[in-house]
Write a protein that binds this DNA or RNA. Structure first.
Length: 571
DNA sequence: GCCGTTTTCGGCCCGACTGTTTTCAGTCG
């Protein structure tokens, strides 16, 4: 898949055009093309082969040609020429907050600055303040920006961010002057990585709100504190912003700050055509500035003739067009889940008993859970041997009776390097649920790895393929596999594909899950919990599924127990 | 560069803030 590489090239082109002061519309066109590629659920090479590139919204003649050229040659002549015309690396200066294209170019032309380190030196030496439209304050701000950049280098995985955001929201709810509170931004859209935490509040008296926010226990640094907006950096290295708005603007502000940017742009374009204007304060008639909506998001969408669109799909991936035709999917919700089909106990590498997991699952309102400890060859996590399986099953039965919830006896069976499963058939036959996953020999060549997994899926006892790509967020790349072939195999064999909800994994990811859904594959959402608290990871899996436009009917473990068992038996 | 029941040419989303300026360019979200 070259999708990301080509998107990166288009973004680079956009950065360089910005520095050169080209038409802003051309620049956004390249950025839109980049985002269109990132959002594709299919390999762009396949689309190109069918000659359908220009049917992708945001891709036109020019970008299509450059995609074709990249697929042929691995680059684009236009791109290389642009790069040659600018000092190498100058676009990295733009990653410093406060430094945009104009400043980057100015710094280079007047001071020869090409790197962030050089910029830091120049600021400290007081050279930057001598440039036109620059001063001492600017210099200080650039230094602050560099420090911030180094602290909050990258987006953080949602699993690290959401708990802090929830704590913050809870703290703000506790302020008696606060009326409404909501997270916004990419966190509300449940993206797998988060750049900063956005929180929106309504209150008649912002002062105490800001006081609580800026003195919150995890705040490491206060960047700004005002009456309508404050910014802090949390100890985990992420920025958090809170904004206080009027109640009549809450919906408009929530819509505005939830994004995505592309979604909002399209929404406002629609508004313009109706003689309306949308901003963070509300929806207004252009002619007389009369406000017609803003208190709730529903009002805002209704003002442009649309139903409310769930935040997770606000990515300008066709959701607005579908909403116009009243064709939005009914996205899956946490409450649709009837059980959890992958978790571990002390029988292998989990830290709770079967009974404790059963109790926790029952407390979540589930009808069933599957205990899926590791299989025998995974000795380093204490995999369950064939001999132990029977005793393990008795423990599951006992917990089931005691707690009063259906405990399915299962395994997360290792897929051996040759594609065989780690238990013999007669052991697998006795289990209720068989999840199969790869845990060893991760660096196989693509075709070999794909064939290995397909072979495992072809085993008649395999019910579910666990964490299909094997990635660990921020730690390990996915193994080399051909996902299309895995989906083919899933359809052919009736094997379900897992959306692993563990925030370290989120595997399948949103784009892959959307592909699988569109192709009609059966999906499951499982937490892979290793203790009872991690059963709550389901919310991350639901987030991924919603981003993938998945409905309850696409997901096996939304079924009531009886129907789930029927599905398992048919296999 | 993209796009079209307002257009194949002429548009293209909106506003706040800041620091440097005497009216606004640049950056950000």
């Amino acid at each position: 898949m070259q999708n990301r590489a080509i998107a990166a090239m288009f973004n680079d082109i956009a950065d360089m055009l910005e520095i050169k002061g080209e038409s802003p519309f051309r620049i956004t066109a390249y950025r839109r093309a980049a985002r269109a590629l990132e959002g594709l659920t299919e390999d762009v090479a396949a689309i190109a082969a069918r000659g359908e590139l220009e049917e992708i919204p945001g891709i036109g003649k020019g970008t299509a040609e450059k995609i074709q050229e990249f697929l042929r040659t691995g680059t684009s002549k236009y791109y290389e020429e642009l790069r040659a015309s600018l000092p190498p690396g100058i676009t990295t200066l733009m990653s410093v907050p406060e430094v945009g294209p104009r400043t980057a170019m100015l710094l280079y032309e007047r001071l020869g600055i090409k790197t962030i380190d050089e910029l830091e030196q120049a600021c400290k030496a007081g050279k930057v303040r001598k440039l036109p439209r620059m001063g001492e304050r600017t210099e200080e701000n650039i230094l602050k920006g560099i420090a911030l950049l180094r602290r909050t280098k990258e987006r953080l995985p949602i699993g690290q961010v959401l708990p802090h955001a929830q704590e913050l929201v809870a703290a703000l709810r506790g302020v008696k002057e606060v009326n409404q509170v909501s997270v916004a931004g990419s966190l509300r859209r449940m993206k797998e990585s988060i750049g900063d935490i956005d929180i929106l509040v309504t209150s008649a008296n912002p002062e105490p709100v800001m006081e609580v926010f800026t003195t919150f226990g995890r705040v490491k640094q206060v960047l700004a504190k005002g009456s309508t907006r404050s910014s802090v950096v949390l100890d985990v290295g992420i920025q958090a912003d809170v904004r206080v708005v009027e109640p009549e603007s809450f919906g408009a502000a929530l819509q505005y700050f939830t994004g995505s940017k592309d979604h909002n742009v399209k929404l406002r374009e629609k508004a313009v055509k109706k003689g309306l204007k949308i901003n963070e304060y509300g929806v207004f008639h252009v002619q007389d500035d009369r406000r017609i909506a803003g208190r709730t998001e529903e009002e805002v969408y209704a003002a442009v003739g649309l139903p409310w669109i769930p935040p997770e799909i606000r990515e300008d991936q066709g959701e607005i067009e579908l909403a116009e035709r009243a064709g939005l999917p009914k996205l899956i919700e946490l409450g649709d889940m009837h059980g959890d089909l992958q978790m571990h106990t002390r029988w292998s590498d989990g830290s709770d008993s079967v009974e404790a997991m059963a109790k926790a699952a029952k407390a979540l309102g589930y009808e069933y859970l599957a205990i899926t400890d590791h299989s025998q060859s995974l000795k380093f996590v204490g995999g369950v041997t064939v001999d132990e399986l029977r005793e393990h099953a008795r423990a599951a039965k006992k917990a089931s009776d005691k707690v009063g919830i259906a405990v399915l006896m299962g395994t997360e069976c290792d897929i051996l390097p040759d594609g065989r499963l780690d238990y013999p058939d007669d052991a697998l036959r006795d289990l209720d649920v068989v999840v199969c996953s790869v845990h060893s020999r991760l660096r196989m060549p693509r075709q070999e790895m794909t064939a290995r997994i397909v072979k495992a899926m072809e085993n008649r006892h395999t019910d579910i393929l666990g964490h299909p790509t094997g990635r660990l967020l921020g730690q390990r790349e996915a193994y080399e596999i051909d996902l299309e072939q895995l989906i083919d195999a899933a359809l052919r064999t009736g094997t379900a594909l897992e959306i692993n909800a563990s925030p370290q994994r989120l595997d399948l990811n949103d784009v892959q899950a959307k592909t699988a859904k569109e192709r009609g594959a059966q999906l499951v959402i499982s937490t892979d919990a290793h203790n009872r608290y991690q059963l709550k990871y389901m919310e991350f899996g639901i987030g991924i599924a919603r981003r993938a436009w998945i409905e309850a009917t696409n997901v096996l473990n939304t079924l009531p127990l009886v129907q789930l068992q029927a599905w398992l038996h048919e296999r």
